[in-house]
């Protein structure tokens, strides 16, 4: 962003909007927008409570288990799709349906399958995160310079070695991009899963706060969730930038 021909740092623009929010909040025009400072105060109040800790631990558990499964299954599946035309044709359509489908509608189905509990939330995280990982990994494997596997074969490598030593490493930038997008979608997955299951984790807190018109607490929690999604994605983004030279050398 530039203002008066000067580059403006993103932090500055965030600060500007925070200021607008604060002012609007103090006018008291909208109940739903309390001043930002009040939201921070509420945040500081809820963070030390047991209720918050329990909600967080159960949420993070679902998030990381679901995300871990999405990575563990998504990368091999995406690689296979990039590697083999048959697999690609076999599952490609389904993956493309799922990546663009309104997955929220699937959560009730998951509830029927897995019951009202943590398993459903994990499944929901998984469903939200996996497809973009699959598609990005597939694209990465497909874009590997064909000379590289040929080179490895010429030195006597077998198919498995070529797969692990060439394809996976060459596709790493795309795989990481997929994981980064997956992490963001997984946040959606965990919140939506818990909201629909409605009796656990931060989903339960969201329910509680909004039902009782506790907008300060509600916003505090929401901002924490945003910050978490942003921070995890940035962490992967950092790793991505460190391997950026892959792309320039291709």
């Amino acid at each position: 962003m530039t203002i008066f021909g000067k580059k403006v740092h993103i932090i500055f623009s965030l600060f500007l909007w925070a200021l607008v929010w604060e002012v609007v909040g103090h006018t008291g025009w909208f109940d739903i927008f309390p001043p930002l400072t009040e939201i921070f105060k509420a945040g500081l109040e809820i963070v030390p409570t047991d209720k918050f800790h329990n909600a967080m631990s159960i949420t993070l558990h679902a998030y990381f288990v679901g995300m871990g499964l999405a990575v563990l299954i998504g990368i091999p599946l995406g690689s296979l799709m990039g590697y083999s035309k048959v697999v690609d044709q076999l599952v490609g359509t389904w993956v493309n349906i799922f990546v663009s489908a309104p997955l929220t509608a699937i959560v009730p189905v998951l509830m029927v399958l897995f019951g009202i509990g943590q398993t459903t939330v994990i499944a929901s995280v998984f469903m939200f995160a996996i497809w973009v990982i699959v598609l990005d990994t597939r694209a990465g494997v497909k874009s590997v310079n064909p000379s590289l596997p040929e080179m490895a074969f010429s030195f006597g490598a077998n198919g498995w070695t070529v797969f692990t030593r060439i394809y996976l490493l060459a596709a790493l930038p795309e795989v990481l991009a997929g994981i980064r997008m997956g992490l963001i979608r997984a946040v959606k997955g965990v919140v939506i899963g818990q909201l629909l299951v409605a009796i656990m984790g931060i989903g339960e807190l969201f329910e509680l706060y909004s039902r009782n018109f506790l907008f300060e607490e509600f916003w505090a929690l929401l901002l924490m969730v945003f910050a978490f999604a942003f921070a995890t994605a940035e962490a992967v983004g950092y790793v991505e930038r460190r391997v950026e030279f892959y792309a320039s050398a291709r």
């Binding site: 310079n145 000379s147 590289l148 040929e150 080179m151 490895a152 010429s154 030195f155 006597g156 490598a157 070695t161 060439i166 490493l169 060459a170 790493l172 391997v243 030279f245 892959y246 050398a249 291709r250």
Partner: peptide
């Protein structure tokens, strides 16, 4: 084989690239 487009692994240093055939 020596490839027209070099076929070097961009994630590996020169020495690891050169040693790749031996490694395999």
């Amino acid at each position: 084989f020596v490839f027209q487009d070099f076929a070097l692994m961009p994630w590996a240093t020169v020495i690891r690239n050169v040693a790749f055939g031996l490694e395999l």
